[in-house]
Amino acid sequence: MGEIIVVTSGKGGVGKTTTSANIGTGLAAAGHKVVLVDTDIGLRNLDVVMGLENRIVYDLVDVTSGNCRLKQALIKDKRFTNLFLLPAAQTKDKSSVSPEQMETLAKELKEEFDFAIIDCPAGIEQGFRNAIAGADRAVVVCTPEVSAVRDADRIIGLLEAAELRNPKLIINRIRPEMVKRGDMMDISDILDILAIELIGVVPEDESIVISTNRGEPAVLDQGSKAGEAYRRITRRIKGEEVALMNLDVPSGLMDKLKKLVGLR
């Protein structure tokens, strides 16, 4: 019996789709049978992030409305034979699927896969309610900004109201040099406010832009810092205890001077 994990955030543009793609690919690379489900109907993107946009025939709405069987709509990944994508419909809207239909789909996916990663759309309306409908666990993605943390707080409240207890937090796009300067909220600041368990911290990394350009998830790039962060998150999702990445910036001349004067 598999597990359904929803990746959500409230705010748009914080990295839900990138996170979904990387966690899903990471779990597949570890040998699990995985399906990625894009529930952002009308604004699908998981297909391009995965580099599978040219292979779409059927989509999520075709499956839930009975136009095709689940197996017909699943797209095989280029890299792993045990990784699949169920793309969102692009020409319909969020109301073309109901939470009840998503629950039915979730049951079917659990029979077939070890993990289903649900990429949730931004917002708290029907798209969100659909995405969380059949989920067993939730991962909340948040960047170290006031707006993202506020929306994450709202989402955590809504998840708990929907009985999705103990959501886990991913802090995305953290910039260690800004944190050090005191110009960006730190991990502890955000945990202090949101009061949920942390499952990973992903540093801001240009390699994410490059990997998205290519349609190759960064988790497979051994030289990518963000990729390393996602590899660790993947292991934590499987229940392993993994230390946080060391994100310290090397101290420069100014720091040494400050230390000397006793200001640090």
């Binding site: 006031v146 944190v179 005191g182 406010i193």
Partner: peptide
């Protein structure tokens, strides 16, 4: 030497704390 009394992160945290009380 860059040791400002109120860093912008402190401001961010305080503003968030207040807005979340209402939220």
């Amino acid at each position: 030497l860059g040791k400002e009394s109120a860093s912008s992160k402190t401001v961010a945290k305080e503003r968030l704390r207040l807005v979340l009380v209402h939220d």
